[in-house]
Amino acid sequence: MPPVPLVHVPILAVTITDATVFAVSAAVIVAGAIGVIAARNPVHSALMLVMTLFGIAVLFVEQSADFLAVVQVIVYAGAIVVLFLFVIMLLGVDRLDVMRRDPLPGQRPLALVIGAAGLSLLLFLAGVHWVTGARSVAGPAGGPGSNVEKLARSLFTTYLLPFEVTSVLLVIAVVGAVVLSRRPSKEAEPEPPETAIEPEPEPEQPEAETAPAAVEEEPAPTGIPGGGS
């Protein structure tokens, strides 16, 4: 395959299907994104986020990044957003947000101004003809062979050290999440004022506590299947 010209692919060379796929996906993505920040219910936000994620997965496929598309679905949709929903349900924080009043004066207009400025700058930069000069550091993305194989070869040769470090990061995250979500142990809790009568150990209490704890500690490890895939 000859080197892909950087930018100037005439739009006529693009098939109608590709253009259609992009247009539909872009619409889905933008609609989903706006939905995320506009929905008053966090669960709706999460669903909108899933919508955006699927749109992006489609664009990944469109750009021949099949593996990433699937991983995107597995990790983001299958694990991260599920985790969000799980926490929302577990904590019961799915009530509606008050959107009208903002306690921080000036936050909203400033945010909009900066957002607009940033967007215009980004759009300007996206249209600029970039030449970095560096290409094919980790191997070609196109050409014969499956996308998975090429990605795997890159990950396990050029990026082997980052790959291993990332696995360490994951382990740390899991341990950290378990520690964070663990209920404080009995000793740490404030003791009731001691009476003159000798304190009787209550055998029922630990059992009563462990049952809900087992349920609540689950959100921490659920990060593994998605992250590890």
Binding site: D66, F67, A69, V70, V71, V73, I74, A77, G78, A79, V82, S146, N147, V148, P225, G226, S229
Partner: peptide
């Protein structure tokens, strides 16, 4: 190409 991953994605 990524058939089995598709299975995992769908089941998640």
């Amino acid at each position: 190409q990524i058939g089995i991953l598709f299975l995992l994605a769908m089941s998640s």
